[in-house]
Nucleic acid binder design. Structure first.
Lengths: 215, 215
DNA sequence: GTATCTTAAATTGGCGCCAATATTGGTAAC
DNA sequence: GTTACCAATATTGGCGCCAATTTAAGATAC
């Protein structure tokens, strides 16, 4: 009716609701266990009921939220066992194509990776938590892409979200973040040196970092 | 109101629509490329419009059907490259836990596997295409379960559907099916003999079978 | 004062309608 | 006879309402 738009953010409102909820879960704005009432989401993201429902259904298919019939949806409470198992899967998949990555690495791709690693470091200081998360994702995607298996790249991106429900606790200490940044550069070094074994070792270490508990 | 139930088949009607469509795609009743008109599905599975919509949305999330805005949904046309890549992923994942499988194998679990392998052979002769498919799935699930990684078992089951969009072409020849049945038993033999390397070789061979083209 | 039953509010979830868009068939013009 | 345009039909997809179930609160009885 009137030209007055509630909220100044007119542009980003047009994005997909599923993405928005996903981001808020990943960034920790919606902590694990939070009940996602349809009315609240409707207002929060300024969207309709069916849109909210579709988003919740999709996220429950991805195992990011749990659905209790006639009770509603809540953010999935990640159990340690599953987190460890998914970590193991990631190590298996990402180290499996290390030889390919070394074989396919060109000076161009290495330069691109350096840029992405630097961008990650930059976001550590100046970026939002979301930008930081996505910078990390972009680096790993580009690295994996050298493996030559597109389906594998997509799959890893997918299962990555499956445990990152507790991103805040994973990335809590600045020391750990900076260590991750350094490891990125070390991976590129190993790639440049055509040292596949060292690359595998670094990847495994990098992924297992959060669960690096001495049993 | 009245006790009269339309249609004698009261039981199977109550199942989830997504499952039903999925099965019909997997068994080849809905061939690749088929346009899935909402009205048709509504009548075919005797369900409501929203149910059909939700099923189509879920299947498109799983990449089993493709969605063209304002045009509709159609069964995904599997491209060879993706099929090969997914095959490679399965080889990576399933061979990665071969050592664990050998380590965790007990006489009990081997007996269970023998039973499942025999059941598969049985279904080759007497079962429907769906029963046959599920018997194969059950065997591989039980085998993978010995790896000790539940998340990996689920993941493999998931990505398995991702290429089996052309199940008919994969399992077309009886000779190949019988070869698969024999390989199941050979895997159990390797497991019993605690021969992890042979098991890996067999698994890789078994998975790559359909794409066994001499380059 | 506490526990339990009853009643009211809120939330979920199923269902159908209607507008927007694409497709098909027909007609007219070239 | 063929092509292009237009209209009618069919299909998709957004949206809101209402019933079923659950939860919370209040009142009454013990």
């Amino acid at each position: 009716m009137s030209e007055v738009q509630s909220k100044t953010a007119v542009g980003p409102e047009e994005r997909d609701v599923t993405e928005l909820v996903l981001q808020d879960i990943l960034t920790g704005m919606l902590p694990a266990g939070t009940w996602l009432k349809q009315i609240d989401l409707e207002r929060r993201y300024d969207c309709t009921r069916p849109e909210v429902r579709r988003a919740l259904d999709r996220l429950s298919q991805k195992r990011l939220v749990a659905h209790v019939p006639n009770r509603g949806y809540h953010v999935y409470q990640p159990d340690d066992r599953n987190a460890r198992e998914v970590g193991d899967i990631r190590v298996i998949l990402e180290t499996a194509v290390a030889d390919m990555m070394v074989a396919n690495a060109t000076s161009d791709s290495i330069a691109t990776l350096r840029g992405l690693a630097r961008y990650f470091d930059e976001m550590t200081l100046t970026g939002t938590i979301l930008e930081h998360y996505e910078a990390n994702l972009a680096f790993h995607r580009e690295l994996l892409l050298l493996g030559g298996n597109q389906a594998l790249v997509d799959l890893v991106s997918e299962i990555r979200q499956r445990t990152s429900s507790a991103p805040v606790s994973q990335w809590r200490t600045r020391a750990r973040i900076e260590k991750s940044g350094r490891e990125h550069h070390m991976m590129i070094d190993a790639l440049e040196a055509r040292n596949a074994e060292e690359l595998k070792r670094l990847i495994a270490l990098h992924i297992r970092q959060p669960a690096d508990t001495p049993k």
